[in-house]
């Protein structure tokens, strides 16, 4: 029988959302539209419309060593062109954010190629070739992996994921990269490292509470669904904890 990945345990909405994000066979709901130029502006790695700076000549122009792995794995478009390696970093609020660092890394590993994710407690960075990155970043912003108020694109000074939200519902940002306009639209006025943008980039209105609760991948006993209510998840975690504790002594399930 062919192996069928289960992606994760749990019977709660949160568990189901985690599986949905990770499973590459499921097409995630597209929630907003951003242009390629918007993405380039927020990333701040190059000026919109400029050529991609390169780190090495295109693969087609250089002599490649005779390597079996290179024959099996096709290079991504960015690697083929010799692009620089650049990054995008996300911060998700613990108050029902649509994703979270580990979840983002799992999702990206299942869905993207040629990436190097970095997972930290409050932020998640993914590095890859620049033109691949822009495509991935666009997908990460346009789909349900992003929520304008509860997710933020922050290259540096990321503090805020565990803080209470501000009055207008935005996650705290020391550099105030995005602001809520008069019509409630979240607009980025600085790029991800905090340098002012030439033109503001609009990412739409924050989504309502019902949507946020239905699409979150974070357990939160006060504002969302409680971890302890998902018995299957607890059972799975207890099993892993028990096995890794016994491992090296008697790694046998009783």
């Amino acid at each position: 029988m062919a192996y069928k990945p289960q992606y994760g345990p749990g019977t709660s909405v949160v568990a189901e959302n985690r599986r949905r994000q990770m499973n590459p066979d499921i097409e995630l709901e597209k929630v907003r539209d951003v242009t390629d130029e918007d993405v380039v502006l927020i990333l701040g790695h190059r000026a919109p419309g400029s050529a991609y700076p390169t780190a090495h000549p295109p693969l087609a122009e250089q002599q490649e060593p005779d390597c079996p792995i290179r024959k099996i794995v096709e290079a991504t478009p960015g690697a083929k062109a010799g692009d620089r390696v650049r990054y995008i970093q996300f911060v998700d609020s613990m108050y029902n954010g649509p994703s979270q660092p580990y979840q983002r890394t799992y999702t990206e590993c299942y869905r993207f190629r040629g990436i190097d994710p970095g997972t930290l407690s409050g932020r998640q960075i993914v590095e890859c070739r620049e033109r691949d990155l822009e495509g991935y970043a666009k997908w990460l912003i346009e789909t349900e992996m992003f929520e304008p108020a509860l997710t933020s694109i922050r290259g540096a000074t990321v503090h805020g994921h565990s803080l209470r939200l501000a009055e207008d519902g935005l996650m705290f940002d020391m550099l105030q990269r995005c602001v809520v306009g008069d019509e409630g639209v979240v607009t980025y006025v600085k790029d991800q490292i905090g340098e002012p943008l030439d033109r503001a980039v609009s990412l739409g209105k924050p989504l309502d509470d019902t949507w946020v609760k239905a699409h979150t991948t974070i357990f939160h006993s006060l504002v969302g669904s409680s971890y302890r209510d998902d018995e299957e998840y607890i059972e799975y975690i207890v099993r892993i904890h028990s096995l890794r504790t016994k491992y090296g002594f008697m790694p046998v399930e009783e």
Partner: peptide
């Protein structure tokens, strides 16, 4: 509450002004 610095404290934009309406 969390600090709102006058200039960007660290990162590539370190030392640049940090306009913040808060």
């Amino acid at each position: 509450g969390p600090n709102l610095p006058r200039t960007v404290p660290y990162g590539p934009a370190r030392g640049k002004p940090n306009p913040n309406s808060n």
